[in-house]
Design a binder for these strands. Sequence first.
RNA 1: GGAGGAGUGGCAGAGCUGGUUUAAUGCACCGGUCUUGAAAACCGACGUACCUUAACGGGUACCGGGGGUUCGAAUCCCUCCUCCUCCGCCA
Length: 426
Amino acid sequence: MLDLGFIRDNKEALLTGLKTKNFKEEDLHIVDKVIELDDQRKSLQTTLDAQKAESNQLSKEIGDLFKTGKQAEAQSLKDKVAGLKIGIKEGESSLQTIKENLEELLLALPNMPHPSVPPGNSEEDNEVFKDWGEDLPDLGESAKPHWELATKYNLFDLQLGAKISGAGFPLYRGKGAKLQRALINFFLDEAEKAGYEEIIPPLLVNEDSARGTGQLPDKEGQMYHATADDLYLIPTAEVPITNIHRGEILDEAQFPIKLCGYTPCFRREAGSYGAHVRGLNRVHQFDKIEIVRIEHPEKSYAALDEMLAHVESLLKKLELPYRILRLCGGDISFASALTFDFEIYSAAQKRWLEVSSVSNFETFQSNRMKLRFKDANKKKHLAHTLNGSALALARIVAGLLENNQTEDGIVIPKALQPYTRFEIIN
RNA sequence: GGAGGAGUGGCAGAGCUGGUUUAAUGCACCGGUCUUGAAAACCGACGUACCUUAACGGGUACCGGGGGUUCGAAUCCCUCCUCCUCCGCCA
């Protein structure tokens, strides 16, 4: 959620930013409407406060009159206050309505994109920020996609998952399961080395948390909802971990806050079916290690660079061909100011698979969460929040299986062998 | 799931038979006096949000959340949430 003060002070820049983000032309008037409603709110508040001040004053006098036994005078004042109260009640009711409308409009405005975000409408327009410098691996026509390799080596079973739950819920087994566990431990250890505190968060979150990071109301249909208890299955560890500090006023000295956590992630992925979603390419449940940072506004972009370097180091250690994209205005998420995606090359499918998304949300999430900090002068400011996948497992597994297939079996990268405790899957 | 108890400012903790509470008091934190320096002692300041003001300041709301009674609610009523104790169930 954008800050009202910011909107008032930067209206033109915001309108330009919203256009970059492909915000609907016909909805741009929301910005003016927000300012208008805020004006109404202020003016009504002023009137209302004055009325309440008078009512409070009279009530005190009534108390004094009762004590001194002047019943008749007290009664006449009581009537006067009763009249005042009618107006106050009406005023409070309209103020409430204005505030609700204002809040609704503010929630409808996406974050303003960083100046470096390229214009564009779709993923086609994303900027290749760092390309894979070498030749892409060519495994020839005999290369098998990961779902065929899985069957050959008995690594995971989608049909069994479908029998137990439904399509898109993979069941891993044998060395496939061990590979998952090895990757989780590897990623967590690497995050720890980079200074992130490990968190095991709840996997179901309440409405406040989902709103705090921006999943509600924008992406309601994408989360599984346990309606009996009104809890949401997390689509990413970003939600519970970022919300750890919701509603807090931090001390500046607490920065940087660096957290990481492994969780399964649940996504309904409603409506996405087709040729590109086979195997592990797109599933309803997958495992992910997430890194989250809460930062001083002046240091958040340096933090973003660090996070990119961290994710890049993981892919290097796994010896996977990768590239980094800077997402264009049309592809960047509602809440993000700047996002870099990491993609690995799947040599058997001959396509790039997204395995990480690293974003700076600036104050967008923290304003929703009222996550602030005090500076040296004890002034309060909104903090910046960032997060990134480091990394998302299902597609990493797909890439590893495909790229490392040989006639003898699937070779495990050296960095991962201490974790799998086997060097080859055959 | 059942019964009972409790949620007050960073922490502890009064108030809870409604009106000198503009929330006592202690601790912590901050500023000052004293001191070579520190401690102690003493003095002062010390919550959040919003409105208003050029500023000093003034005002409104907030005692877990929401609603109600009343001229007036931390205090009474309803409801929800959370925590504690006991019972039941359970990995």
